[in-house]
Computed example of a mutant assay.
Amino acid sequence: MESAVADTEGATREPVLSLKGVSKGFGAVRALTDINLDIYPGEVVAIVGDNGAGKSTLVKILAGVHPQDSGTIMFDGQVVSIPTPTASRALGIATVFQDLALCDNLDVVSNLFLGREIRNGLSLDEEEMEQRAWSLLRQLSAKIPSVRIAVASLSGGQRQTVAIARSLIGEPSVVILDEPTAALGVAQTAEVLNLVERLRERGLGVLLISHNMADVQAVADRVVVLRLGRNNGDFHVADVSYEEIISAITGATDNVVTRRASAHAGSASAAAAAADASGTGTVESGITEDFRTHETPAPGTEENPQS
């Protein structure tokens, strides 16, 4: 009964962010063609693909950097337009780019509230911002020694933590992480992946751009593959192998060898169909038919010599 209820809820829930037929070109270059993508609340969707697959262009469209040429973007069931980064943030989409865009000379609190400072009259309410900073970092189980330490003194994983925490200040519904574990060590990568888990637990839709298949399989619920600017697979992580994802990324399932094999299989099927139509079959089909029509009689029947 519980599984049936869960299936019903999964079937009726609506995606928080949905792309239908989104395309984008730069002159003669088609960066994206008819992209379809759904992101549900409390779900981590990984976007993977080779260089030039269109991942960065897709992120920039959702972040309001580039408008799409065609297709529709729906947020909470409503068709929306994202002409600017400000419109993207106001909508509820927070983007953490690979370069993080942090101010190294400022402390953690100043980076978190940069452009969104809390004021008490004409002065900044430093105490309130510090309390909120600690509260947010505790919710993410972040390992930051002090919120008054300069960002330049933090490790790569801690800097990524600050960037992700800053994206949550505006209470977004979707968080986009562009290569969050790039150039990080093992311990720092684990720290960032823990943050992704915390975002899922908060009920946010997470779009994860990554080249690291181990990270993808560790935290993602679904994997969407882009190849040459087109959709080339949408897999549930629990149901797909590492090799199948790599095949979709590289196009290994669509090459000269596989096309030749498909052509030979089609020719063999056509020949078999023609043989069946003419009443002549192969030896193998005759043997199979013989076994089908001459089954071993059950004990106790008249055909059984021991009865």
Rank of each mutant, 00 (worst) to 15 (best):
G54V: 03
G281M: 14
S123I: 15
A63I: 05
V29S: 05
S307A: 13
R230F: 06
Y242A: 15
N120S: 13
G77Y: 01
S210R: 03
T288F: 12
S56M: 09
E126Y: 14
D107L: 01
L154D: 07
G77C: 02
I169Y: 12
G64H: 00
I118L: 12
L168W: 04
I47N: 00
E43M: 01
N51F: 10
Y242M: 15
A165L: 11
P172V: 07
G27Q: 09
Q217S: 11
G25F: 04
A268Q: 07
R198G: 09
T288M: 14
R230I: 05
I93P: 08
E117G: 07
V175W: 03
I246L: 09
G64D: 03
A265F: 10
R200W: 11
S3K: 14
D234A: 02
A53M: 00
V44A: 00
H264C: 11
F26T: 04
V175A: 04
R89G: 00
A142E: 08
L106E: 11
V151M: 10
N255T: 02
M129P: 07
S110Q: 14
L193N: 11
A272N: 05
L124D: 01
G64S: 06
S173T: 12
A11L: 15
T296E: 13
L124S: 04
Q139G: 06
V96A: 05
V256S: 09
V206S: 04
G25Q: 10
V175L: 09
V45L: 06
A214E: 13
N51T: 04
L122W: 10
R13L: 06
A101L: 14
A238P: 00
Q131F: 12
A274M: 15
R132Q: 15
L62P: 02
V256L: 14
V237K: 13
G25T: 07
V80F: 03
A133L: 01
D290N: 14
R116A: 08
L226Y: 03
T189K: 08
P299F: 09
V216Y: 03
S307G: 14
R202S: 08
N232V: 02
N111S: 06
A220D: 09
G279A: 01
I35V: 15
L207M: 15
D38T: 01
L114T: 06
D76C: 06
E289H: 13
A261D: 13
H294I: 13
A238G: 07
S23H: 03
D69H: 04
S70P: 07
G54I: 05
S135D: 10
V65I: 13
S155P: 06
L122Y: 10
V80L: 04
L228A: 15
S267E: 15
V206F: 03
L124I: 14
I149A: 12
L19T: 00
L208E: 09
M129K: 07
I209C: 01
L58K: 02
Q139C: 02
V174N: 08
A87P: 12
V240F: 05
D99K: 08
Q98R: 08
Q98S: 05
H264P: 05
L19N: 00
S18C: 11
G185V: 01
G64L: 07
E117V: 09
Q158G: 00
W134E: 10
G77R: 00
A63D: 04
G92Q: 13
T84F: 08
A252P: 10
Q158Y: 04
L37T: 07
S135F: 01
M213F: 09
N120H: 12
R260H: 12
L140C: 04
P41N: 07
T57R: 01
Q188A: 13
